[in-house]
């Protein structure tokens, strides 16, 4: 973990309430896809944990949804402004067990962390296929970005207004070696039941600190108590209690 002052270089809406923010500065603490950053915002006491969507040598990209005071405040920020950010938080996804044909399943704002993961898997010579789930056509984002990487992408919408009608679990390919997923808990539970290989789940929880100090985000697993912010947010299928 590192405390960095990052400068906003981009903050653009992708849909009505989902924004992409690019932050430049020292992001050397980001070491794995699926990690998150924790952002201090003016006038708010707790930081806002947001998963990392992309990271290169000197910048990090996050995609966030305006759901409350903090994220709404973020939508009004402009390039040039700086943010105090704790970077490199959480364990992140482990690509070692992925096999040759990993499956990436993202739902809503659970989609972003899969982007850096897809990049890493591709760099390792693997061939990830991607299923992205949204409620409706207007909420779809990142489809083209995954296609640009060279991934095979299927989009599902609950109302059928775009792509396959239904949930990500309605569009599972027949053949995959492993899976990685991030999304709302009902989706994670459905993925848990619908998949026939091992895989990794990224969880969300209200956090106090984001770095393991307060025990605010603990959960029970088969292998004991885990802090979503420290031993998570990524847990393996075999250790999850659903």
């Amino acid at each position: 973990m590192k405390e960095s002052f990052l400068t906003i270089t981009e903050n653009t809406p992708l849909t009505k309430d989902v924004y992409r923010m690019k932050l430049s500065g020292d992001v050397s603490a980001v070491t794995a896809p699926g990690q998150f950053v924790n952002i201090k915002l003016e006038g708010l006491f707790l930081r806002r944990p947001i998963s990392v969507c992309d990271c290169d040598g000197d910048s990090v990209t996050i995609i966030y949804k305006a759901v409350g005071k903090g994220t709404e405040q973020m939508t009004r920020m402009n390039p040039g402004e700086t943010l105090n950010v704790l970077t490199g938080l959480g364990n992140g996804y482990d690509t070692a067990p992925s096999g040759d044909r990993p499956l990436l399943l993202g739902g809503g704002v659970g989609v972003p962390p899969l982007y850096l993961l897809a990049k890493k898997l591709l760099a390792e010579g693997k061939r990830p296929s991607v299923v992205l789930g949204f409620n409706t056509k207007n909420e779809v984002f990142c489809e083209q970005e995954f296609k640009n990487l060279g991934c095979e992408v299927t989009v599902t919408t609950v109302d059928g207004s775009y792509g396959v009608k239904g949930f990500v679990t309605d569009a599972l390919p027949e053949d995959y070696t492993y899976f990685y997923t991030c999304g709302p808990e009902p989706m994670l539970k459905a993925v848990y039941r619908a998949t026939n290989t091992s895989g990794q789940f990224s969880f969300e929880e209200r956090m106090g600190c984001g770095f393991g100090a307060c025990m605010g985000c603990s959960c029970k697993t088969i292998t004991g108590f885990k802090r979503i912010c420290k031993e998570g947010p990524v847990l393996r299928k075999e250790e999850i209690l659903f």
Binding site: L44, F45, L46, E205, R206, M207, G208, C214, M215, G216, C217, S218, C219, K220, F225
Partner: peptide
């Protein structure tokens, strides 16, 4: 002790509320 179920944390003006429950 595991402590209380989550959510255990809430924010408020100039502070926070926790109910970790002595994990």
């Amino acid at each position: 002790r595991f402590g209380n179920p989550t959510p255990r944390i809430a924010e408020c003006a100039s502070g926070m509320i926790n109910a970790v429950g002595l994990q």
